[in-house]
């Protein structure tokens, strides 16, 4: 089995992990003013493309 010869330094570890990050979600602002995802029904007002899709009490 291949075994590493030297311990990776904190610096090397940090360099490797410098590209590990969570993707930033695309956020738009619904006409109701709340942030929401593009191309989706706004969870706050339940509207999409000017049409009321969900009743307000239906939202999660």
């Amino acid at each position: 089995m291949a075994v590493q010869q030297n311990k990776k330094s904190r610096s090397r570890k940090g360099m490797r992990r410098s590209h590990d990050h969570v993707a930033v979600p695309a956020v738009i602002y619904c006409s109701c003013g709340e942030p929401t995802l593009p191309h989706s029904v706004c969870p706050n007002c339940g509207a999409y493309k000017g049409r009321q899709v969900l009743a307000k009490n239906e939202n999660e």
Binding site: T36, L37, H39, S40, V41, C42, P43, Y48, V53, L54, N59, E60
Partner: peptide
Amino acid sequence: VLKLAMPRKGDNAPMAI
């Protein structure tokens, strides 16, 4: 098909109508 912004609680599945 209308995508919902909030995924399902429990398994984080993207939901739609």
